[in-house]
Design a protein around this nucleic acid. Sequence first.
DNA 1: CTATGATGTATGCACCGTCCACATGGAGGC
DNA 2: GCCTCCATGTGGACGGTGCATACATCATAG
Lengths: 203, 203
Amino acid sequence: MTLSQNGTYHHGDLRAACLRAARELLEEDGSAALSLRAVARRAGVSATAPYRHYADREALVSAVAAEGYRELAEHLSADRPAPSTPDDLAAVAVVYVRFALEHPALFRAMFAEPCDPTGEERVAATEAISSYVRALVRDAFPGTEDTDALSTTVWALVHGLAFLHLDGKLDASAPEVVAQRVRASVFALFTAAPALRTAVAAD
Amino acid sequence: MTLSQNGTYHHGDLRAACLRAARELLEEDGSAALSLRAVARRAGVSATAPYRHYADREALVSAVAAEGYRELAEHLSADRPAPSTPDDLAAVAVVYVRFALEHPALFRAMFAEPCDPTGEERVAATEAISSYVRALVRDAFPGTEDTDALSTTVWALVHGLAFLHLDGKLDASAPEVVAQRVRASVFALFTAAPALRTAVAAD
DNA sequence: CTATGATGTATGCACCGTCCACATGGAGGC
DNA sequence: GCCTCCATGTGGACGGTGCATACATCATAG
């Protein structure tokens, strides 16, 4: 009967300790290192103790992902509290991609897992990001008729940039190069082939 | 000494058999089901036999991913052999996203794995897609000065749309709804907030 | 016809997720 | 103040996994 870290049989706040340990393992050695047993070891607790707080491994990963969503949302809004210009939009996009590159395993856990939509904690956190983007787009594009569609476009663009960098499809060795590319891509939303506008408008 | 599937000690073409089995497992039960042992079982061979052809699990997954890249490239170019208009671009985008939704686990294996850039098979396959997009953008946007930057933007947008649908961030229950949203997003590249163009141009 | 190297087998180890029976001890009713 | 209940943690077991190692088979080159 090994005693828990703090010398008592009961840990005190194992739920939070697991979350923290999981997060650390993820950041240190990637998602492969994120095992329930490793989490338990790091929390100084028996292998099966975490099951009192998380139904299974996926539940724990999901909790970590939800935390990641919250942090991402914070980063975004912290950088530009009241974004309303195209430059703000580009800056927020840069923050989004940088977050992905600075927390690759966490970002993958947030998006690249099979992840059923039943995790209400995750759904709420996602909604926060989604609505932030929508508000940003509304302010930056006052004349747009379909804000939702454009928000989707913007989110997808930035999200895609994040993943392509993360997967090495785009060079991500120098942060400033990445930032510049992200800004250029966002601005390309407005400068792309003026000739085409008429072709589309005629549709 | 169990005999291999075809009754002989040596399998004949275990390399290809492993690839096929891996692909099947991936499509049937997702990436969690893709274990080397399961692959070996399906190929009717001992658990360690695949190691003669693949250094480790990751090497096998990487081979499957490379196959996925080739198939995706085929799908794209098969749908529009000589794409050159905005409509072609939108159609290709729809094919890209549909491929992701019809082969979710494969698509994830292609992009969502840690994946070092050292797999030359993968690099080549990626390059094929990348250059296809570049050519498409060049033809569809004859007046563009920086084709590479715009290609990046287009790929990122479409790729992001694929992932957001895959992760349930965008409703993907009805294929036609998805297709419509993808088309709208691509077209949004040209119709977004004309007023902003001047603001950016002044930069 | 034989030796050799490519291919497949058998075995074992460490680790994993998860189920189960059981131990502990803090909090609330008597 | 004591005692009981139950949330929380322990320990052991089972079947699965990736992978290293030693050995078996057999097609083919000399």
